[in-house]
Design a protein around this nucleic acid. Structure first.
Length: 859
RNA sequence: GGGCGAUUAGCUCAGUUGGUUAGAGCGCCGCCCUUACAAGGCGGAUGUCGGGGGUUCGAGUCCCUCAUCGCCCA
């Protein structure tokens, strides 16, 4: 470190330009290891970031650029504050999005029953309609191949954008370490009794044939119709009870009718039975508070299972289980044992094997024929539960699944997790409510098993009895040291692979974990939990989790759950929630709308700093319109920084503190100290947008007014001492401004830094408001605004007279209050020079008003 | 149905705990080749702060209410 260079040693170009600076400085940072995490730092010296791993199989869009820039601005600020920033990058390549992309990209599908084909080549011309079935191992190999390509594209974008990531700290959510951490954490949950398996009604997507968790649900409004159906009472078949249902196809699965306990219409029926039409099954009429007297006829048909309320009734009223829908979404082919009468069997046969859609049509036709259907179906629109990535309504089927406790069935745990949410510092604060709404509304534990292929396997096996049936209560658990493992190829301790699927042997659990079961462990995966305890102690718990608001219920909450269960603490101290990018019509940008803009094109057109400028102007948690106008402004700002810096550095500008004697210079430094203090406070509150705004406003005033005022003096027009004061102030201010801009505009600030100082600006210390303030010697910053005001009035007079700004003012009089005059006196030489004013006088007035007499224009 | 947020200039948005005449940029209009910057600079015009009511000496800011939009949860 040799300190600032003198003009003779400056490496300043003749004509500063943004061209080429991105490649140059990206390479420099890489070579210097500017962003490498120094792992000798202790926890209190570290600022650790739980970076969101982007879904690499998704498309790149400006939304990525937006939120990742926010995090980078914080990271750069903290680094300049002297923290060692732990800023890893993960790639979310795990799970269903990758599976779907691989299917479409290569034209294949996974069939786990097939054998592995070494050197498999996917079809040269993929045909989505004729996907080639391949083994699970082949399928996973293609997943890994494709995600690797995707990750390269993302990394290029991040580097181009100037994210100050430590590229030696990367992970993949499907990588070896992520699998190990996921399996290890799961086994710990299992050991502590927080993970359990249960045979239970589960929301089920018939397209993907997998269970779906509460967090992955969404309601969609769908057309439906109420069918009014008469049920004869068992005691008197001429008396009928009328129900209204949107799902008549489930009539064969009916287990009860339920009405509200206070509903006088049905009270006489409670405890009696009625008979299902077509299928002749006697079912009880029961009372339950969840039955809504206002809905339909006020009495509901309970089935196995039409919706989640059916599940509650089934559980709380201890009803029969009569499933008729299979995992493929079709009516089960075999006639169930509760359907006994010949006519009933015939009715069932008519729907056996049909999709629920077809079954509905057929049941309605049979009801109509038997005159059980009263009137015509009444069409309605109602919310139906869907898997967020699916396009068929979810069914509810009973399956064996693995769960992790999350407070959904345990008030004590729920309260503890709500308390964790309050302990967490939210930015912006109002986002906490979304967390609380979610936790308080949970109605079951976290279902983590998925019947998919590309994911982290559940690391368990089960004993098979002498007939080859699995004994699920006899779970075979591996040693932690053997992780990660795949139970479909690895054998449990005490067994060999030839006992697989054999009576008396074992079977591997066929399922994989929910992607959130892995993503919920990003702090552990990135931070070296149970792999590198030294690193883990230096970075955990993380300082900040940056993320978007729509995944508070999934990613944020599940991470809190894992950390709470494993370490009894929060996984991170702050949650920085970013908004969305909206297109100019204020619609959320999405690929399906065709309004997605590719980020690389923007970076090429406006420069990385300019795009970052736009992104950083989006306040935390606020949705922001996509606006190339802001990028143009950012570009202009970057160019202005180059030019203003070139001008300032053209003087023999040194950090000569004692030279600062002029009132105007001290006033500027007083103002600058306030700007540094405010920008710092804004950053500490994660409000990077405000820090940028404050800095930018100061900078433009600095160049427009202060620089214009001191030009003549800095050139020596008022003597050596006066020039030295101006030059020192210019240098100190430029350095501070560059540093204040550095988190936002890393390229252009580094470029200027390189002209006159060594090392990287991004490793230089953040400006010190106290030091700058002390140089101001208690000057009143009001002078800056006042003199700018006066200068503006002189400019206005020239503008109105349509003369050049260099036109000579014969005489000017400044009216002002006494205290203003006292301040302005000190800067009058500068003022006269900047305004080309020959004679200047003062008069008293309530506010600053300048009267100007222009010199006759000489021809 | 419950909750959260938003509504300020033609556009995109600031406006900290209530306090002079409500700000910025873009766009628009006018001027200026000025030796850091013409891909620039300077200046100008533009507002029922969504509507209504209230608290207060004083409300864009606090309270109530309505409307519209967005999101989260049922």
């Amino acid at each position: 470190m040799t300190g600032p260079r003198t003009p003779a040693n400056l490496t300043m170009p003749e004509k500063p330009s943004l061209d080429g600076i991105e490649d140059r400085w990206a390479r420099f940072w890489d070579e210097q290891g500017s962003y490498t995490f120094d792992r000798s730092s202790t926890r209190d010296q570290v600022f650790s970031i739980d970076t969101p791993p982007p879904t690499v199989s998704g498309s790149l869009h400006v939304g990525h650029v937006f939120s990742y820039t926010h995090t980078d601005c914080m990271a750069r600020y903290k680094r300049m504050r002297g923290f060692e920033v732990f800023y890893p990058m993960g790639w979310d390549d795990n799970g269903l999005p990758t599976e779907r992309r691989v299917q479409n990209f290569y034209g294949v599908r996974c069939d786990p029953s097939l054998a592995y084909i070494p050197d498999f080549q996917p079809p040269a011309e993929p045909d989505a309609k004729r996907q080639v079935p391949i083994s699970r191992r082949n399928f996973i190999e293609l997943c890994e191949q494709l995600t690797l390509e995707d990750e390269v594209v993302f990394e290029q974008l991040w580097r181009r954008l100037g994210l100050s990531i430590d590229w030696s700290q990367t992970y993949q959510t499907i990588g070896h370490n992520s699998q190990r951490v996921s399996q290890l954490a799961f086994l710990r949950n299992l050991k502590r009794g927080e993970a359990y398996q249960a045979e239970a009604p589960t929301l089920w997507d018939v397209t993907f044939r997998t269970a779906v968790a509460q967090a992955e649900l969404e309601d969609r409004e769908r057309p439906g119709a109420y069918h009014r159906i008469g049920f004869p009472t068992t005691a008197d078949t001429d008396t009928k009870v009328f129900i209204e249902t949107t799902r008549p196809e489930l009539l064969a699965a009916c287990v009860a009718l339920v009405a509200h306990p206070d509903d006088a219409r049905y009270q006489p029926l409670f405890g009696t039975t009625v008979t299902t039409p077509l299928f002749g099954v006697d079912v009880p009429v029961m009372a339950h508070a969840l039955a809504d007297p206002e809905k339909g006829s006020g009495i509901a048909m309970v089935c196995t299972f039409g919706d989640l309320t059916d599940v509650i009734w089934w559980r709380e009223l201890q009803l029969q289980t009569r499933p008729i829908i299979g995992w493929d979404g079709r009516i089960i082919a075999d006639i169930p044992d509760w359907v006994t009468e010949d006519s009933a069997k015939a009715h069932y046969t008519a729907i056996a094997g049909a999709t629920s859609h077809t079954a509905k049509e057929r049941v309605v036709a049979m009801l109509r024929e038997g005159e059980h259907l009263i009137g015509e179906p009444r069409e309605i629109t109602h919310p139906v539960k869907f898997f967020e990535k699916g396009d068929k309504p979810l069914e509810i089927v009973t399956t064996r699944q693995w769960y992790i406790t999350n407070g959904g069935r345990d008030a004590e745990l729920r309260d503890a997790l709500v308390a964790r949410g309050s302990e967490l510092q939210w930015h912006p604060a109002h986002m906490k409510v979304r967390y609380e709404n979610w936790v308080e509304g949970l109605n079951g534990d976290w279902l983590i098993s998925r019947q998919r292929f590309f994911g982290v396997p559940i690391p368990l096996w089960y004993r098979l009895d002498d007939e080859g049936n699995p004994i699920y209560s006899e779970v075979l658990i591996p040693e932690e040291s053997l992780l990660p493992l795949d139970p479909s190829t690895d054998a449990p301790a005490g067994f060999t692979n030839d006992q697989r699927d054999q009576p008396g042997g074992f079977i591997g659990d066929p399922d994989v974990m929910d992607t959130w079961a892995t993503s919920s462990l990003t702090p552990q995966i990135a931070g070296g939990w149970e792999r590198d305890p030294d690193l883990w102690d230096r970075v955990a718990p993380m300082d900040v989790r940056p993320q978007a608001h729509e995944i508070i219920r999934t990613w944020l909450f599940s991470t809190v759950v894992r950390s709470h269960l494993e370490d009894d603490r929060l996984p991170f101290k702050h949650a920085a929630i970013s908004g969305w990018i909206l297109d100019p019509d204020r619609k959320k940008m999405s690929k399906s709308k065709g309004n997605v803009v590719t980020p690389m094109g923007l970076l090429d057109e406006y420069s990385a700093d300019a795009v970052r400028y736009w992104a950083a102007s989006g306040r935390p948690g606020t949705d922001t319109a996509f606006d190339v106008g802001q990028m143009k402004i950012g570009r202009r700002l970057a160019i202005k920084i180059l030019n203003a810096s070139k001008f300032v550095l053209g003087f023999d500008a040194g950090f000569n503190d004692s030279a600062i004697t002029a009132d105007l210079d001290r006033a500027l430094l007083a103002q600058l100290a306030g700007v540094v203090q405010q920008a710092t406070a804004a950053f500490e509150d994660f409000n990077y947008a405000r820090a940028l705004e404050i800095t930018e406003a100061f900078f433009w005033n600095f160049t427009d007014d202060y620089v214009e005022l001191v030009k003549e003096r800095a050139y020596g027009g008022q003597g050596e001492a006066q020039a030295a004061s101006a030059k020192a102030t210019l240098a100190i201010t430029l350095e501070a401004v560059l540093k204040l801009f550095a988190p936002f505009l890393p390229f252009v600030t580094e470029e200027v830094w390189s002209w006159w100082q060594d090392g990287s600006i991004h490793r230089s210390p953040w400006p010190d408001a106290h030091r700058i303030s002390s140089l101001s010697q208690g000057a009143d910053p009001a002078l800056i605004g006042e003199i700018a005001n006066a200068l503006s009035q002189v400019r206005k007079a020239k503008s109105e007279a349509k003369v050049s700004m260099r036109a000579v003012v014969e005489s000017a009089t400044i009216a002002a209050t006494d205290s203003q005059v006292a301040r302005l006196q000190g800067a009058m030489a500068d003022f006269k020079a900047a305004g080309s004013i020959a004679e200047l006088s003062f008069s008293s007035g309530e506010r600053i008003e300048v009267s100007v007499v222009l010199a006759p224009i000489s021809v």
